[in-house]
Simulated assay, not measured.
Amino acid sequence: MIKKIFSYLIPIKIYETKSVLSKSIEVTWANGELVLDSQNANYSYGSLQRILRLGLKNIGYKKILDMNHILVLGVAGGSVIKTLVEEIKFKGKITGVEIDAEIIKIANAYFKLDQIKNLEIVIDDAFEFVLKTKAKYDLIIIDIFLDTTMPNFLFETFFINRVCSLLKSRGVILFNTMILNETQNIRNKKYIAEFYNKQFKIKTIPRIEIHNELILIEKLER
Rank of each mutant, 00 (worst) to 15 (best):
Y61K: 13
Q49E: 14
Q39V: 00
S44K: 04
I51N: 02
S22Y: 01
Y43C: 07
I64D: 03
I51H: 07
D37C: 07
L36K: 04
K57M: 13
L48Y: 12
A30H: 07
N31T: 06
S19M: 01
I51A: 00
M67Q: 09
V27K: 08
L48A: 12
L56T: 02
L34Q: 00
K23P: 00
N42I: 15
L48I: 13
W29I: 03
A30N: 14
K18M: 11
S44T: 06
Y43A: 11
E33F: 12
V35Q: 07
L52C: 03
S47I: 11
W29S: 05
S47R: 10
S44R: 07
L36A: 12
E33D: 11
A41K: 07
A41Y: 05
L65Y: 05
L21W: 01
L36P: 01
G32A: 05
Q49K: 10
Q39I: 04
N31F: 02
S24Y: 04
N58P: 03
S38P: 02
Y45K: 00
D66I: 04
K63A: 13
S44H: 10
N58I: 09
S47C: 12
V35M: 06
I64E: 06
I59A: 08
L48F: 08
D66A: 13
T28G: 00
S19L: 00
A41L: 06
L52A: 04
V20H: 14
L65T: 13
L48N: 06
S44F: 07
Q49I: 09
L54V: 08
K62P: 09
R53I: 11
A41I: 14
D37I: 01
M67T: 13
N42V: 08
I51V: 12
L56Y: 06
S47D: 14
T28W: 08
K18I: 03
I59Q: 03
Y61T: 06
S47K: 14
R53A: 12
S47T: 09
I51R: 01
S22K: 04
S19V: 05
G55Q: 03
G46M: 09
E26R: 12
I25W: 00
K62L: 13
